[in-house]
Simulated assay, not measured.
Amino acid sequence: MKTVIPSISLIYCTFVTGICSEFSVTAYSKRLGRDVRSTQKLRGLRQCVRDCVDRGQCKAVNYDRESLQCQLLGDSITDLSQLMDDDSFNFIDVSTQSTGFPACTITCTYGVCVKISPGNEYCSVPACPMTYRYSTALNFCYTKVEVSKNFTDAYSYCKTIGCRLAVPSTMEHILFLREEFNAGYLDNDYRIGGQWDTEEGKWMWINGKTVFDDINLSLSDFEEIESSSGELIWSKEDDLSQIDTGHGKKFLCEKLAFCGEFSVTAYNKRLGRDVRSMLKLRGLRQCVRDCVDRGQCKAVNYDRESLQCQLLGDSTTDLSQLVDDEKFNFIHIASQGTMFWLKL
Rank of each mutant, 00 (worst) to 15 (best):
residue 121 E to V: 14
residue 201 G to M: 05
residue 256 L to D: 10
residue 295 G to R: 06
residue 176 F to D: 06
residue 6 P to A: 10
residue 53 V to R: 10
residue 190 Y to N: 01
residue 164 R to P: 13
residue 330 F to Q: 10
residue 300 V to N: 03
residue 47 Q to N: 15
residue 322 L to A: 08
residue 311 L to T: 07
residue 271 L to I: 03
residue 35 D to Q: 04
residue 157 Y to M: 13
residue 241 S to C: 12
residue 312 L to S: 09
residue 215 I to Q: 09
residue 22 E to W: 07
residue 267 Y to D: 03
residue 73 L to T: 04
residue 298 K to N: 10
residue 312 L to W: 01
residue 28 Y to E: 03
residue 12 Y to G: 09
residue 149 K to G: 03
residue 296 Q to V: 06
residue 266 A to S: 14
residue 236 K to V: 07
residue 114 V to G: 11
residue 251 F to P: 00
residue 22 E to C: 08
residue 187 D to N: 12
residue 131 T to E: 01
residue 57 Q to L: 15
residue 260 G to A: 03
residue 85 D to R: 04
residue 338 T to L: 12
residue 49 V to D: 04
residue 32 L to F: 08
residue 211 V to A: 04
residue 71 Q to Y: 00
residue 25 V to D: 08
residue 157 Y to T: 03
residue 317 T to Q: 11
residue 287 C to L: 08
residue 160 T to F: 03
residue 124 S to G: 02
residue 52 C to W: 05
residue 49 V to A: 02
residue 62 N to P: 06
residue 134 Y to G: 01
residue 129 P to R: 00
residue 57 Q to P: 07
residue 49 V to P: 00
residue 136 T to P: 07
residue 160 T to D: 11
residue 110 Y to E: 15
residue 338 T to N: 03
residue 316 T to P: 01
residue 336 Q to K: 08
residue 259 C to I: 00
residue 155 Y to G: 05
residue 56 G to I: 08
residue 261 E to C: 05
residue 235 S to R: 00
residue 103 A to P: 14
residue 42 L to I: 06
residue 14 T to H: 14
residue 285 R to C: 09
residue 344 L to I: 11
residue 10 L to T: 15
residue 77 I to G: 01
residue 131 T to M: 02
residue 52 C to G: 15
residue 164 R to M: 10
residue 15 F to M: 15
residue 120 N to Y: 15
residue 30 K to N: 03
residue 310 Q to T: 06
residue 263 S to K: 15
residue 321 Q to L: 03
residue 314 D to F: 00
residue 102 P to S: 09
residue 50 R to Y: 14
residue 129 P to V: 04
residue 217 L to N: 05
residue 171 M to A: 08
residue 185 Y to C: 13
residue 163 C to Q: 08
residue 238 D to R: 05
residue 286 Q to L: 11
residue 301 N to S: 12
residue 102 P to Q: 02
residue 338 T to G: 00
residue 133 R to Q: 07
residue 330 F to H: 00
residue 282 R to F: 13
residue 340 F to V: 02
residue 303 D to G: 12
residue 43 R to T: 02
residue 253 C to V: 09
residue 92 I to N: 04
residue 268 N to A: 10
residue 19 I to W: 02
residue 249 K to G: 12
residue 114 V to I: 11
residue 245 T to Q: 13
residue 286 Q to V: 08
residue 166 A to G: 05
residue 15 F to H: 13
residue 216 N to L: 09
residue 142 Y to M: 06
residue 185 Y to K: 12
residue 328 F to P: 07
residue 35 D to W: 11
residue 87 D to P: 15
residue 148 S to V: 10
residue 337 G to V: 08
